[in-house]
Design a protein around this nucleic acid. Structure first.
Lengths: 337, 337
DNA sequence: GTGAAAGCGCTAACAT
DNA sequence: ATGTTAGCGCTTTCAC
């Protein structure tokens, strides 16, 4: 049963015709007679012939493959992006090669080389947190490989990109709290060297200013995970310095705050309303369900892929890079009512 | 900048030597003189030469690629499996081609053909819920492509497989409830045509019997998602027919039960203790945190890949298929204390 | 120590 | 309507 795969030559030999005739018959070339086509297709089906995609790639000098470099596949947001990528790519006859950087610079470089070796026709990238040098990506561009960034972009690198409007989404989230009568709103923010974090903080600040609330630096606390949020809220309770609203830079932080507070007897949302960011599986199942910003991972993936495929097909060297900004939806649930 | 990739020929031409010498120099062949090697390697580095993996695959009639067919990448369990797969595969110099079936039979067949076309050296499969016909997978085996199943296996198909001991894990989960003094334990089960569901039910039953509890068919309720669980617990409350423990076939169902009950004023775990299955991101962040079975997705992925690579390399046609059973850990949290 | 040639599977001029 | 040939990039046997 370990027989080598059937090739066009096998079919040709059996039918006593040439390989090129078989090739043409299989792709319904007008020159080929109906009988020949019939014979070829029948035999091919019978032998379960599968065209060798590798040979095709070599011949055509294009792999019909796109590469994806992503920080971590186990994050709901990123896996939904991949879903969007795959759907669009497969529909267009492309296969997808997925690489995880695990947030490491070295891995990202290794991934780049791997994709280069496989002659991918284009690449989708969301850069690793750790990466500060981007020569490897620049090199890809120089080799003429179209690059589309999504979510985590590289400021210095001119390229197509798909991002969500973090500032605006954060503004909407904060404004929602304000519209519900909250006046002392804490922001749990991410590390300030990440553009994503500062954008979200800026949105928060805009909403606060616009509403004429006091703009207190003490209300902005750097905490971007579950544990840090738990610690931070315990401090608040200890100091009897409770806000009436919290906007967190991501959902896990919001949940940490929520649970930390609940454990200390604070009622959510009655005493403190909470809003997260990056609506994942978990927002709907917390208690109470968490208001959050839907980042549209699937749409981001499919849109980025559409742009990439367009670049690949048009192969116009002098295009102007496009930036597509998706609006994050605020999904209001019980935690902020 | 759209220059074609550098090939071995380019290097040969520039250096005025033959392509075969370049090839040998690059792989440090003993015949080649030190100077030639040096010259070749330097030029290759300078030109950023990348060997063409596609040409290599064609030449060697193996792709150094393994295929993965998985139901849905957006499930935490499956994405951690993929993480495990990728780590092992990349370390061994293999690339990974990931396909989602989205639980559809048609997609699974299409994925199979795609992987076949790409001449993958082996395939890892977790079958789609919808699939009942497995000729496409059988065909792969007949073509001599090693297949390793993980998690969702195909009973009739002799092949390597990595599964978790669902029966035992379900037994442990149920026994844990019993050990904590619970006597009337409901099981929310999955569809009975899925082996995974019946295994879990069997484990539940074994624990119940062993403890000499009443084995009431009314205590087994088919409900395997959030909404169904909410409906089911509402019935219980309406009928004033509350159990004191619930073991659910997956976490989302457990969470649905938990929230449904809480909304109706039932205290978790005081009145009803709850245990889920397939410890994902969410078990730790529910309120109270959910006791659940850790399915070891990463280990399952890495183990399955190790087995597959071994099959690929040994290429012994007459091996006896191996079944590796992982033990699921019960992770005890507040929901069952 | 190096080169020439063949071939992996396929396609696309260029014959006939 | 079909066959012949060359070549995609690389490795490898066989020469020298």
């Amino acid at each position: 049963m370990k027989n080598n795969p059937i090739t066009i030559k096998d079919i040709a030999r059996i039918l006593g015709i040439s390989a090129s005739t078989v090739s043409r018959a299989l792709k319904d070339h007008p020159d080929i007679s109906v009988e020949t086509k019939k014979a070829v297709n029948e035999l091919a089906a019978q032998l379960k012939y599968q065209p060798n995609a590798i040979a095709l790639s070599l011949k055509q000098s294009r792999s019909n493959t796109i590469g994806v470099i992503i920080p971590e596949i186990v994050h709901h947001f990123f896996s939904s992006v991949i879903s969007g990528i795959e759907d669009v790519a497969y529909k267009a006859g492309y296969t997808v090669m997925i690489c995880q950087s695990n947030e490491k610079y070295d891995r990202e470089v290794a991934n780049t080389n791997m994709l280069l070796a496989h002659r991918v026709d284009g690449v989708l990238v969301s850069v690793a947190k750790e990466a500060t040098n981007f020569d490897h990506l620049r090199m890809m561009k120089e080799k003429g490989i179209p690059l589309v960034f999504f979510d985590r972009i590289v400021p210095g690198l001119e390229s197509d990109q798909v991002v969500i409007d973090d500032e605006e989404a954060a503004y909407k989230a904060t404004k929602h709290l304000i519209d519900n009568g909250r006046k002392r709103i804490v922001h749990f923010s991410g590390p300030s060297h990440l553009q994503i974090s500062t954008n979200r903080k800026d949105g928060y600040l805009r909403a606060v200013r616009e509403a004429g609330l006091t703009e207190d630096p003490a209300l902005i606390i750097e905490a971007d995970n579950f544990e840090k949020a738990v610690v931070a809220v315990r401090h608040m309770v200890d100091n009897k310095n409770l806000p009436d609203g919290i906007f967190a830079t991501n959902d896990l932080t919001a949940v940490g705050a929520m649970q930390g507070l609940q454990k200390l007897g604070v009622k959510i949302p009655e005493q403190i309303a909470i809003v997260g960011f990056s609506d994942g599986r978990l927002s709907g199942i917390t208690n109470p369900p968490l208001t959050s910003v839907d980042q549209h991972g699937y749409e981001m993936g499919s849109l980025a892929t559409e742009i990439l495929l367009q670049r690949i097909l048009s192969s116009d060297e002098n295009y102007t890079p496009v930036t597509r900004v998706l609006q994050g939806n605020l999904v209001v649930r019980e935690s902020s009512k």
